Simulated scan of single mutants.
Amino acid sequence: MKIRDVTHEDKAALISLCQITELFQPNELEELSSMLSAYFEDGLDGEHKWLTDEEDGQLRGVAYYAEETFANGVSNLLLIAVHPEYQRKGRGTEFLRHVEAELRRMGKRILIIETSSLDSFEATRAFYRKNGYDEEARIREYYNPGEDKIVFRKVLL
């Protein structure tokens, strides 16, 4: 497992990876593509960071976090995904721990993660709970009628 910053050349493979997970709708994949383009055009900074997990030249995972603008020492993990063939083997946990360690080095206090309440995201929610995240908030009907936003929280320091 090799975790590194993404490069512009990774963009197509990262979008394909997200598509393979089947957790993203076509419009969400388009938004991810736009976000990656903006990331490369605006320059790389520590407040917004895209990482990838690479093995044998193939991208196996992706993570994206950003600092919460009006909160002191709080970051938001906006995306973490692992190729389905590599799920449930500890790879996602190792990737998440890498992100947490990176944020600790930056002096961040809290990491939040937002996800969907849909049944198809139960494995995702279980993953966060298994890794020490507590459900902190639920915003009903946030994404769509019948689909809440669930916010998980973990204290880093």
Rank of each mutant, 00 (worst) to 15 (best):
M1E: 08
M1R: 06
M1P: 10
R4I: 06
D5S: 11
V6R: 00
T7A: 07
T7F: 05
T7R: 11
H8T: 07
E9G: 06
E9A: 09
A13C: 03
L14I: 15
S16A: 12
S16C: 09
L17P: 05
Q19K: 14
T21G: 09
E22A: 12
P26L: 09
P26W: 05
E28A: 12
E31H: 15
L32F: 14
M35T: 10
L36Q: 07
A38Q: 10
A38S: 12
F40W: 12
E41Y: 08
D42A: 10
G43A: 05
G43I: 05
L44H: 10
E47C: 05
E47D: 13
L51Y: 09
T52R: 01
T52P: 02
E54R: 03
E55A: 07
D56C: 06
G57I: 06
L59A: 09
L59P: 00
R60D: 01
G61I: 02
A63C: 05
Y65N: 00
Y65I: 02
E68H: 05
F70T: 02
V74Y: 04
N76I: 09
L77I: 04
L78H: 11
L79F: 03
I80K: 01
I80N: 00
A81D: 11
V82R: 03
H83R: 04
E85C: 05
Y86R: 14
Q87G: 03
R88N: 12
R88I: 01
R88M: 04
G90D: 00
G92L: 01
F95H: 01
F95M: 10
L96F: 00
R97N: 13
R97P: 01
H98T: 07
H98D: 03
V99D: 00
E100D: 05
E100K: 04
E100H: 03
A101N: 15
A101D: 14
A101E: 14
E102H: 07
R104L: 03
R104G: 01
R105D: 12
M106D: 01
M106G: 01
K108G: 04
K108A: 04
R109A: 12
R109Y: 14
I110F: 11
I110S: 04
L111K: 06
I112W: 00
I112F: 06
E114R: 07
T115R: 05
S117A: 15
L118A: 14
D119N: 11
D119V: 13
S120L: 15
F121G: 10
E122V: 13
E122A: 14
E122I: 14
A123Y: 13
A123I: 13
A123D: 15
A123R: 15
T124P: 08
T124D: 07
A126Y: 02
R129L: 03
G132K: 06
D134W: 09
A137D: 06
A137F: 02
R138I: 13
I139K: 13
E141L: 04
Y142I: 13
Y143S: 09
N144E: 15
N144H: 15
P145W: 08
E147K: 12
I150W: 08
I150F: 09
F152P: 02
R153M: 11
K154S: 07
L156H: 10
L156N: 09
L157G: 13
